[in-house]
Structures are given as C-alpha cells and as structure tokens.
C-alpha cells in the first residue's frame, strides 16, 4: 500500500536529523555464530556417545574444551558489544527477568559452569559415568541457551522480520549445523559411518534452514509493509542481496550437495569441505539477517 501512496504523493523527507547507523554490528553476529558452535558441539557429542559410544568416547574432553572456547568467544563478543562493558555485573545484581538478555546471561553462565564440571570429570577425575550424567543436564540447558537469542530478537519488537517461531527454529538449526560441522572436523578418529551420520544431520539442517529462509523471502512480504521494505535489501539489486545469496549457497546449498556427493563416493574430504563451508556460510547468513532490519528508518 505504501508503494502506491508514495507514487501518488511523492513524499520526501526534506529535513531530519542523522539517524543511528547499525546498532547491533558484526560483534553480535560473532556472538550468535560462536554460540551455535558452542552448544551444537555438546548436542553432537551427546548424540555420538549414544549412537557410537566406543569410538566417540575419546571425544569427551576435546569436545568439551572446544565448546568452552566457543562459549567464551560468545561471551567475549557479547561483552565487547556493550557500550559500558564494565557494568556487565549489573545483570547479576539488578536483574530484570522480563528481558531475554538477563535470562540468557544467567543461563549461559550456568552452562559455562556445567561445561567446566564436564571438563573436570573428564580430565581430572576421569569419571565417564559422572561426565555423561552431567552432560545430559548440560544438553537440556543447552536448548534454552541456544534459543534465548531468538527470544531477544523477538523482544526487539521494532524489527518485524525477527519473529520468535521462525527465529527459534533457525537458532536450533544453526546449532545442529554448526555442531555437526565442527564434530566432522574434530572427530578425526571417528569411523566413516559416524561421520556420515553427522553429514546427514548437517545436510538436513542445511536443507530445513534454507527452506525457512526462502519461505521468509517469498511469503514474508505478506506479513506487513515493514517486512516488505526490509526484504527489499536482499532482493533484486538490494544492498545486501549478493551477500544474502552468497550466505545461502555457502552455508546451505553447497554443503547439501557436498554431503550427497560424499555419501555416493564415501569421501571424508568432501564431507570436511562441506563442514568448513557450512561454518563460514553460517556467519554470513546470520550477519545479513541481523543487519537488514536495522537499515530501515523507524521514525
């Protein structure tokens, strides 16, 4: 409707102040990307220990360490994005529980404590039974830790593109994609069958995420004029159209094809290439989706 109005009125803003630029920049992309790997690895470790307990047993410690590294990377970039990082402690001393940021910070902190517990049982105590018991609860907590960013984006009600149901699914798919990709690269001693099953998870999560993004692209404009305006940045000659499609191909389309190819030729090298592309592409996909709603003037 706005397009017709604009054509008829030729309304132009002739005097206004400079509007804020990108408020949540690449640091927030890093936050989401690193968190997807951090929680995804734990999900995949849980899966491998259930499905292939003998050959994946030696991944307990290394996977936990990699998860710790990426979760700390997520926390570091969260902190770096704050304009007042030295006041981070306010979240713990003045918590506001309606905020997904507060709930997420508390859950992520507990998640880190549990990861350290897992590392302790694995490296110091060498007690696999206790490790597995703690890992079960860590996986349970990992689910809301993965999802809370979707709640946060949904609470940013000004940005209509980010709807909780779709974003929740995308966050979970990103964790599965990143987790399976990381585990393919990490699990050098895993059998081809185990790696192949990780490839199936990678391929299916890529396919589902791709379908969701394409659905948003095609059917999103039916929601509201704001979504039409935002999606225009990734359509046609839009400012972020090239980056959007690079992300879609590198994160989803190419890994899907490569996973299929690796299965037909039982090639681990192709599977590893798919994993690397998925991890790189995921960053691009997340970044585009983070930035485009911020380009729209709110007033």
């Amino acid at each position: 409707m706005v397009h017709e109005t604009l054509a008829a009125t030729h309304a132009v803003v002739t005097l206004d102040v400079g509007l804020p630029g990108i408020v949540w920049p690449w640091k927030v992309t890093m936050n989401m990307w690193a968190k997807s790997i951090g929680t995804g690895i734990i999900f995949m470790l849980f899966y491998l220990l259930k499905r292939y307990p003998k050959e994946s047993g030696n991944l307990r410690f290394s996977s936990t360490v990699v998860a710790l590294v990426f979760i700390h990377m997520f926390l570091l970039f969260t902190l770096a994005d704050l304009h007042q990082p030295l006041r981070m402690w306010h979240i713990f001393f003045y918590p506001h529980w309606t905020s997904a940021i507060t709930v997420g910070a508390w859950m992520a902190t507990l998640f880190v404590v549990m990861l350290f517990g897992m590392a302790y049982f694995s490296f110091v105590k060498k007690d696999n039974a206790k490790f597995d018991k703690l890992m079960f609860w860590t996986v349970i907590l990992g689910i809301p830790v993965t999802l809370y960013t979707a709640a946060l984006m949904s609470e940013a009600t000004a940005r209509e593109l980010w709807q909780m149901p779709t974003e929740s699914a995308q966050m979970m798919l990103a964790a599965l994609l990143a987790g399976s990709a990381s585990m393919i690269l990490l699990g050098k001693k895993l059998s081809y069958e185990a790696k192949s099953s990780l490839g199936v998870i990678l391929g299916l999560s890529a396919l589902t995420a791709f379908i969701l993004y394409q659905s948003e692209l095609i059917f999103g404009p039916m929601k509201s004029e704001e979504v039409i305006a935002v999606l225009a940045y990734v359509k046609g000659n839009g400012e972020y159209a090239t980056m959007f499609w690079i992300g879609q191909f590198v994160a989803y389309v190419l890994p899907m094809l490569l996973v299929a190819l690796s299965r037909s030729g039982r090639s681990e090298s192709i599977l590893k290439l798919a994993a690397i592309l998925a991890l790189v592409g995921l960053w691009v996909v997340k970044h585009v989706w983070l930035i485009i709603p911020q380009l729209l003037p709110m007033s």
Binding site: P20, W24, L82, H83, Q84, M88, T157, R159, M298, S299
Partner: peptide, 13 residues
C-alpha cells in the same frame, strides 16, 4: 550497561 537492546526494541526510533 549500553547493550542497546532498547534502541533495537523501540518501534519509534
């Protein structure tokens, strides 16, 4: 703390 969540949430900029 300057997280800018409010900037992102305000529909009125």
């Amino acid at each position: 703390i300057g997280c800018a969540g409010c900037v992102m949430a305000c529909p009125y900029g």
